[in-house]
Write a protein that binds this DNA or RNA. Structure first.
Length: 116
DNA sequence: TCACTGACCGTGG
DNA sequence: ACCACGGCCAGTG
């Protein structure tokens, strides 16, 4: 009979990675969140380090993930070096009305968004 | 095959 | 207040 394609010819990313991408895309414009918050929101044994690792290959995810809205708990743009240009992350955030000084978000908690 | 690293965070001394 | 270490997953040499 018609053998259902049990196999997965489409190499979808691991579930937890996919969840991270979805969560990041849900971040409202002008808001930011932290790696730890995403890891905690998804739960599981996910850790903030894994979120960062997922972000590393986020540029291959489609649609593209607004990784510039994800910073560490210090509000520092730790991942800016991984963007096309080292200043792109800051420019994107500033374009959304977020003030940045010394690679750090000003009024971080004001722009902080909690995954829900 | 084993060991180390990575866009981190929390806790302990 | 500062420094050191563990933890979780996947990829690379």
């Amino acid at each position: 009979m018609n053998t259902p394609i049990k196999k997965k010819p489409v190499p979808r990313e691991d579930d937890w990675i996919e969840k991270i991408y979805v969560m990041v895309r849900r971040i409202p414009k002008g808001k930011v969140t932290t790696y730890g918050a995403l890891a905690d929101a998804i739960g599981s044994r996910l850790t903030s380090r894994m979120v960062g690792w997922a972000m590393n290959k986020a540029h291959t995810a489609k649609p593209k993930v607004p990784a510039h809205r994800v910073v560490n708990r210090n509000g520092m743009l730790t991942g800016k070096h991984h963007f096309a240009t080292p200043t792109l992350m800051q420019e994107l955030l500033e374009a959304e009305g977020i003030r940045i000084e010394d690679d750090k978000i000003k009024d971080f908690k004001t722009h902080y968004w909690t995954p829900s």
